[in-house]
């Protein structure tokens, strides 16, 4: 692959990755959010595949295919199934931060991410590290999503975004994540999703709702 094309694909993947994160902040419907998450997963999978094709090694490609299967297809499907079980409409209720403010915060976080990763780019200016700030910004945005959403399901989505961000940053700034590490991380995510699913179910049974503010009374 020509370097220019490679750089273009990498930048495009990182950009759409970040865009997906910003759109998740904007949209409140759970189904739309989940399809955005799948989009983000596909963008994430593009990165190692592009790396693999560029370096002519099959390992990153294998990692990319695993990522694509898991984060682009399997986890969104699982989430969509869980959302279908939500009886109170698949919409996030009034969020803790209104949409305009949330988008402003997102912009601020993106700036922080770019500022924070500057030394990294100066240290080794490769196409990968140049795209890394976008992945890092998506990571911070994911944390923000977790802070500002009420529904347990949105928390799960935020958590998946967070892990996507971590994986994307790792793919971009390292020479390549070994398959076994990626498999291990993905397995963790799968388990975390299962636990979250069970918890959500329990919450619905106990409170008839999955608003996390209900848990406020549980302290002490």
């Amino acid at each position: 692959m020509i370097t220019a094309t490679y750089t273009g694909i990498l930048t495009l993947a990182a950009g759409s990755f970040l865009l997906a994160a910003v759109l998740i902040v904007w949209r409140r419907g759970l189904r739309a959010t989940i399809s955005l998450l799948a989009w983000q997963g596909v963008a994430l999978a593009t990165i190692p595949i592009a790396n693999g094709v560029h370096q002519r090694s099959w390992m990153p490609i294998a990692v990319g295919i695993v990522v694509l299967a898991l984060r682009g297809v399997l986890l969104p499907l699982l989430l969509a199934r869980a959302v279908r079980g939500e009886d109170q409409g698949a919409r996030e209720p009034t969020p803790l931060v209104n949409t305009t403010a949330a988008l402003l915060v997102t912009a601020a976080l993106t700036m922080i991410a770019y500022a924070a990763t500057r030394p990294l780019i100066e240290h080794s200016p490769t196409p990968g590290t140049r795209a890394a700030p976008a992945a890092f910004a998506a990571l911070l945005i994911a944390v923000f999503v977790m802070v500002s959403r009420r529904r347990a399901m949105s928390q799960a989505i935020g958590f998946l975004m967070l892990d996507n961000g971590i994986a994307a940053t790792a793919f971009l700034i390292t020479a390549g994540v070994p398959l076994i590490v990626e498999l291990g991380a993905s397995l963790d995510i799968l388990f975390a999703m299962i636990v979250l699913g069970v918890l959500t179910d329990r919450m619905r049974q106990s409170f008839g709702d999955t608003d996390l503010n209900q848990l406020r009374e549980l302290r002490d």
């Binding site: 977790m146 802070v147 500002s148 009420r150 996390l212 503010n213 002490d220």
Partner: peptide, 10 residues
Amino acid sequence: HTGSIHLYLL
């Protein structure tokens, strides 16, 4: 320590 998960996440 209010018990709000969002605050802890914040």
